[in-house]
Simulated scan of single mutants.
Amino acid sequence: MLSTRSVPVVRATLPVVGAALERITDRFYRRLFEECPELLRDLFNRGNQANGSQQQALAGSIAAFAGMLLERPDDRPDELLLRIAHKHASLGVTPDQYRLVHRHLFAAIAEVLGKDTVTPEVVAAWDEVYWLMANALIAVEARLYRDAGATGADTWRRMVIAERRTETRDTVSLTLRPADDRPLAAFRPGQYVSVQAQLPGGARQIRQYSLSGAPGRAPWRITVKRVAADGAPNGEVSHWLHAHARPGVALTVSAPFGDLVLPPGDGPLLLASAGIGCTPMLSMLDHLARTEPSRRVTVVHADRAPATHAHRDELHALVARLPRATLHLWYDDPDDAEPEALPGRVDVSALDLPDGVTAYLCGPLPFMRAVRDGLLHRGVPARSIHYEVFGPDLWLGQK
């Protein structure tokens, strides 16, 4: 809870700080990487830095957290911050790094807004906001590390590629086995792992990939779509994996993390995905087929065409194992390979959704926004709609 002394200061300055947050975060990252270039080389996604999405995500999370402190002071921040904490844990973020971030972030605020605006009173109030957010994240991340059986923030282990399978022209799946005799960590359906890639030039870039099999089933499997390289460093890890990930190659992989997971109970579900967003849904469906086959499930997937739909045959097979599941497909360019599919974009109004449905969305942000808007229009409560973003969460605070 924000102190009574800081509330009026944050409320008065939030419009000014909020309007400048993207400039502040841009300056912050420049300062941070000037002092610690290894963070850009080995921790932060260079593609997201180059296109500005990481800066936007950081700005959005700070604004959303400050707004929550003002408008809902009695709410715990854990739910708002859980997605960020899972991503940080998958990267091995440590408490010391929050102090480093604090120093450069507040220097950036002063540089962008100027000393006339950033008075000692303003600094003290926003310092309180920062540490409320940072300490909440540190606490959640400590719990995640503990649950993963990690020593500190070290959740990494060596895995060996056991099999490589071409799913579409631009998508391959990789099955991973431990390089040692230790058992694989447990995971919940829908979670992901981080994978380190040792790139030319020595950079160690990290990306997240959903585990697309059922929990408890070995080996693990991830699916990698080759991202269009519209200029370095976009797609550098997916291109490296497509070129070098072969059976016998060792990869450094994190423990499983991620908060888009199936809830307990027997209520109806909607699993809606687009493109490579199908991967966490495969894990959920596999788990349901093994443990709760009578649960009512509506499955929706959108793609460019049947030929670009990764794991299409597997999706059909999983849905067929669930007696009360229905599958609805939309393609930009449908063909005879899927005669029942509909053309164009997903139309939520065409779905037969039961009362009390809980929705899980994964795919490009425009797809998820459109589906979420359609579900809200149909009366599905916002609390019952969950999502996963591959990359910086630009949706946080904008829903």
Rank of each mutant, 00 (worst) to 15 (best):
P264W: 06
P264Q: 15
G265K: 05
D266S: 12
D266A: 15
G267P: 01
G267V: 00
P268I: 15
L269V: 06
L271W: 07
A272N: 09
S273W: 01
I276F: 08
C278V: 15
P280Y: 11
P280N: 10
L282T: 07
M284C: 01
D286Y: 01
H287R: 11
L288T: 04
A289C: 09
R290A: 14
R290D: 06
T291Q: 08
E292I: 02
E292V: 06
E292K: 13
S294Q: 15
S294C: 10
R295H: 12
R295E: 08
R296E: 15
R296D: 14
R296F: 07
V297W: 03
T298E: 12
V299M: 08
V299R: 09
V300S: 00
H301Q: 07
H301L: 05
A302N: 07
R304P: 00
T308D: 13
H309S: 10
A310L: 02
R312A: 13
R312F: 11
R312Q: 08
L315N: 01
L315R: 00
L315T: 04
L315H: 00
A317L: 02
A317I: 02
A317Q: 05
A317E: 11
L318A: 11
V319H: 14
A320M: 02
L322N: 08
L322C: 08
P323Q: 13
P323T: 14
P323L: 10
A325M: 03
A325N: 02
L327D: 06
L329K: 00
W330S: 02
D333A: 15
A337F: 13
E338S: 15
E340A: 14
E340I: 00
E340G: 03
L342M: 06
L342G: 00
V346W: 01
D347G: 03
V348Y: 02
D352K: 04
L353H: 06
P354Y: 00
P354Q: 05
D355I: 03
G356H: 11
V357K: 03
T358D: 03
A359L: 12
C362T: 09
G363E: 05
G363R: 04
G363Q: 09
P364Y: 07
P364V: 10
P364D: 10
L365W: 01
P366E: 07
F367S: 02
M368D: 07
R369Q: 14
A370S: 14
V371S: 05
D373G: 04
G374T: 08
G374M: 11
G374W: 06
L375K: 04
L375Y: 07
L376N: 08
L376I: 14
L376M: 08
H377V: 09
R378D: 12
G379V: 10
V380E: 11
P381N: 01
P381K: 02
A382V: 12
R383H: 12
R383W: 02
S384R: 14
S384W: 12
I385C: 10
H386W: 06
H386E: 06
H386L: 07
Y387E: 13
E388I: 03
E388G: 05
E388R: 10
E388V: 10
F390A: 03
F390S: 01
P392V: 13
D393G: 06
D393N: 13
